[in-house]
């Protein structure tokens, strides 16, 4: 569960990125986070992963209280939250298989677990036949699938995607969104930041709209047209 209560975040420069955000995302839910550029979406994600601390208010994520989390607890929080980015962030000199296995190795998984789990998630994202390739030999959509497989491999209860389709054409974007929905159907909480209006309209999910550091809309009634407000 993700719960923000009256969260503000001011960067050291003085700009207030968030000005009192409250929201709650239940386990197993699928929510879109939309809003214009600079509205504070990435700031919210960084607060969830413990990269930033709230200036005031409380942030609860999967049992951790982020406003007072200890530094050495942060890795364990992050194992419950898989993250996917617009720019994939893959390791170029590792194979598809190793990119995924790497995420397991660095949290101390056993060889046996890795050998079982990696093919399973590669199969889930449809990359099982390309496990020996390198990221450079994959299309954009395939690279994003690989990033999703990596986010998924340690079995996090939540996946957060920051504009996962920002670099993809409409057809690939649709595939990625379908994949995220499929993963959500398997029980993983999903929070997806996006600018893609047409995608949001094709997936009738909860939409949280923020503008200028405030939640201005939160509901199941489709895309929120903040431009017109």
């Amino acid at each position: 569960m993700i719960e923000f209560t009256d969260v503000t975040k001011a960067y050291s420069v003085g700009t207030k990125a968030l000005r009192g955000v409250s929201m709650q995302i239940e386990d197993g839910e699928f929510a879109f986070l939309v809003g214009p550029s600079g509205s504070g979406k990435s700031t919210i994600i960084k607060l969830i992963t413990g990269e930033l601390k709230p200036t005031s208010g409380t942030v609860h994520v999967n049992g951790y209280s982020l406003e007072r989390i200890r530094k050495r607890e942060i890795p364990y929080l992050r194992r419950t939250v898989g993250v996917v980015f617009q720019d994939f962030r893959l390791i170029e000199n590792m194979t598809v298989y190793d990119n995924v296995a790497f995420a397991m190795r660095v949290v101390g998984a056993r060889h046996k677990e890795i050998r079982e789990r990696v093919p399973y998630v590669l199969n889930l994202v449809g990359l099982d036949t390309k496990s020996r390739r390198h990221p450079g030999e994959l299309s954009g959509g395939e690279q994003q699938r690989l990033a999703i497989a990596r986010a998924l491999v340690n079995n996090p209860s939540t996946i957060i995607a920051d504009e996962p389709t920002g670099n993809l054409d409409p057809a690939r974007s649709l595939e990625i969104m379908s994949l995220l929905q499929e993963i959500n159907n398997l029980g993983t909480t999903m929070l997806v930041v996006t600018h893609a209006k047409d995608l949001v309209e094709r997936f009738p999910k909860r939409v949280i709209a923020i503008d200028n550091g405030l939640v201005i809309h939160d509901g199941m009634d489709g895309y929120y047209h903040y431009e017109n407000q």
């Binding site: 992963t49 530094k71 050495r72 890795p75 364990y76 929080l77 992050r78 194992r79 898989g82 993250v83 962030r89 390791i91 790497f102 995420a103 660095v106 949290v107 990596r150 986010a151 340690n154």
Partner: peptide, 10 residues
């Protein structure tokens, strides 16, 4: 950065 992201300890 990736290690940190997926929760490797310092």
């Amino acid at each position: 950065a990736i290690m940190k992201m997926v929760g490797a300890t310092n």
